[in-house]
């Protein structure tokens, strides 16, 4: 005869796993709440304009202008993209279209390792190699927009390569075959067919690379020179939003500390916008 058994443990497991899944949301919520909670009061007290558009950063004397840092953050990010995007895209094309199986077996782990090297090590080697190079051949102190862009450009390579590689690989084979059948050369096929089809994925890789560059901290502190003004040439030193937080957080108190959280709020907003564009504006299109 058929009997009825009960499995009550299942409900408990489901409940626990639901809590686990919700924990990520909780953490995100906490991060937002606590950074906003600390960072917003100063915006209300001093004024949004005076902080975001203010030029003078003297937090112990009630000047909290971070405009130069906002500009600097975007400058290094743009610089990193100028260096990292073409190089990264070329590597992705090479990996998917040109490299043999053996080269791939060697290149892919090399790229993963490149992604795994800590940012402090990148910063250190930037100081050893790039900074003197810039100083000796181009002038200035070497701690500059240019040096920072170069190092960040290299640091975002793995992100750009792996995501654009995925986008290029997912272009259907028939597109390629069709193009070859029409008599196109390999490069014509890549240029006219593959890159346009993989466009949104490649764009997503650039934007995620930007996200990584704008959020990078330790390497930037070591190379950027951290000067408090808007750089007027690529050889000028600069201070980014991230650098500002990391340089002063350890000893800041009172409004000074709050102002670093305000800097964090600005950074958080920029990052969320970039992520949103990359994940939900572009990636989704790729998947469809």
């Amino acid at each position: 005869m058929i009997k009825k058994y009960r499995f009550n443990k299942e409900h408990l497991v489901r409940a626990i796993l639901t809590v686990f899944a919700l924990s990520s949301l909780l953490f995100l919520f906490l991060i937002f709440i606590f950074i906003l909670f600390e960072g917003l009061p100063l915006f209300l007290k001093i004024g949004l304009n005076k902080i975001i558009l203010g030029f003078k950063w003297a937090p112990t004397k009630d000047s909290f202008g971070i405009f130069p840092m906002v500009v600097s953050s975007f400058l290094v990010t743009f610089g990193a993209l100028v260096i990292g995007a073409p190089l990264g895209l070329s590597c992705a094309i090479y990996l998917s279209e040109y490299s043999g199986k053996k080269t791939k077996m060697f290149l892919k782990p090399a790229l993963e390792l490149l992604a795994g090297i800590p940012s402090v090590v990148y910063g250190f080697l930037g100081v050893i190699y790039i900074v003197p190079l810039v100083r000796n051949y181009l002038g200035g102190s070497g701690f500059s927009l240019l040096s920072t862009s170069i190092v960040l450009g290299v640091m975002i390579l793995p992100t750009i390569i792996s995501i654009s590689f995925d986008a290029i690989v997912s272009v259907p084979k028939t597109y390629r075959e069709g193009s070859f059948a029409m008599g196109a050369t390999k490069w014509q096929t890549i240029y006219k067919v593959i890159i346009p089809s993989a466009k949104s994925g490649i764009l997503a890789s650039f934007i995620l690379g930007m996200g990584r560059a704008i959020g990078e901290t330790m390497a930037v502190i070591m190379i950027a020179g951290n000067a408090l003004k808007i750089p007027t040439s690529i050889l000028d030193p600069l201070r980014t939003l991230t650098g500002n937080i990391a340089l002063e957080l350890a000893y800041a108190t009172g409004d000074h500390r709050l102002s670093l959280f305000s800097t964090g709020v600005v950074l958080l907003v920029i990052i969320m916008i970039l992520n949103y564009i990359a994940n939900f504006g572009i990636k989704r299109k790729v998947l469809k």
């Binding site: 990520s24 949301l25 953490f27 995100l28 906490l30 991060i31 606590f34 950074i35 995620l208 996200g211 990584r212 704008i214 959020g215 990078e216 901290t217 991230t242 937080i245 990391a246 957080l249 670093l260 959280f261 964090g264 950074l267 958080l268 990052i271 969320m272 970039l274 992520n275 990359a278 994940n279 939900f280």
Partner: peptide
Amino acid sequence: FGVESLAGIPSILYGLF
């Protein structure tokens, strides 16, 4: 969305938090 957002937050903001 929460997981993707967490993944995108730079480490300095984790430090700040």
